[in-house]
Design a protein around this nucleic acid. Structure first.
Lengths: 211, 211
DNA sequence: GTGTTTCGCTACGACTCGTAGCGTAACTGG
DNA sequence: CCAGTTACGCTACGAGTCGTAGCGAAACAC
């Protein structure tokens, strides 16, 4: 998750405290100013760090913000075990929505995704730092549900991963769209309806493909 | 969809051709440069228009891009009648994905949504120019399905609109997430699986709430 | 100590922003 | 045809940001 080249040994080491201060300052500035008015000079000043230090560690605004948001996701996002697939989905949806409701993430996530549309390296960085971690939750949730006997066990072929991908896009996409575009609250009721839709629909997907 | 104050009469009228040229230039610049490197000076030069003319009609980058994208949505997005709810969903998903795959919309949509996170006026503008038009397709699709007898007819209470909103967030969110975040193709197969998931899940939502 | 790397600081040219001022073009009402 | 009104193209401007370079001092490994 860190900046550049970790494999050096001699000379003065980079201050890890500065790293944390910079990422925290980035989130604070994002929350106040939003993506558009965010300047690296302001971030440096908040972090008590010279502007040149920022440019030594990150290539630009995009990379810095990705790391700042990824740190939040890493420490906040996990899959609670609530006893049933439906409850698990509802739980993780509520957690994800809580994360999306922070002012830092609201503006930052969409902005870096927009920039990634024409920047392959940035897209890869987002995938590794944020998306793969989310997708892992889907795989974990499916395995738990299979262990409980709620859905049929693993079959071979490409149908399994494809279904995981579909579920991931539906869950994450629906929550993001609800929060960012419709700008309506993700409460227990809405999360519950989404969970029902998914569990029932998932069963339909199985019967539709296995004759 | 147009700029400011439409209700004047005296004096030289604003050139409608300039409007179209500016919006087209904005889309072209977006496709080439992306949101981050897009400058209003460049747009003005492409459109063969003075920079001051741009600022007379639009408040800034955000508003201009919203209108430029909204024009695309207006002329491209509609709901085909393919004979069944499942086929209709699959069809509109494919159309929406086609729109999202254009380089202009890829970077522009996410960027304006990001800016709207801390700009209420912009969020309202996006809603009126883009979102409401999309949501209308959901309502239309539901009414068609009810006329065909595929789903139960209208009930009273707030359950109906709530269900429309859920479907809207799931469909639009899933497609956006698939294209922008997972960056994998929305082909007939994927759209078909999403349609099955929704139709089956929708039936589950009805039986879960009507005892 | 010696060598190496990072740090804070200052300064810089290049660029974009959004606005103001001016003379001209286009259209309206008398 | 002629004022009145508004939009247009052009130029120029201060303000702000960007990303980089150069410097001396500080923090580590050997």
């Amino acid at each position: 998750m860190c900046p550049l080249s970790p494999g050096k040994r001699t000379g003065r080491p980079r201050s890890a405290a500065a790293d944390r201060a910079i990422l925290a300052a980035t989130r604070a500035a994002l929350a106040e100013q939003g993506w558009g008015r965010l300047t690296l000079g302001d971030v440096a000043a908040r972090a008590g760090v010279a502007k040149t230090t920022l440019y030594r560690r990150w290539a630009g605004k995009n990379e810095l913000v990705v790391d700042a948001v990824a740190a939040l996701f890493e420490e906040q996002l996990e899959l609670p075990d609530l006893g049933s697939l439906e409850a698990d989905i509802q739980g993780v949806v509520l957690r994800f929505a809580e994360l999306l409701n922070r002012p830092e993430t609201r503006t930052a996530l969409m902005a870096v995704i927009a920039e990634a549309a024409h920047d392959d390296a940035l897209r890869l960085r987002i995938r590794e730092a944020i998306v793969d971690r989310q997708k892992h939750l889907v795989v974990l949730g499916r395995k738990r549900a299979q262990a409980r006997g709620e859905i049929p066990p693993e079959e071979d072929g490409a149908a399994g991963p494809e279904r995981d991908n579909l579920i991931f896009d539906v869950v994450a996409g629906a929550v993001v769209h609800r929060v960012m575009v419709s700008s309506e609250p993700v409460d227990e009721e809405w999360a519950g309806r989404l969970a029902v839709l998914l569990v029932v629909g998932l069963a339909g997907l199985h019967t539709a493909q296995d004759p």
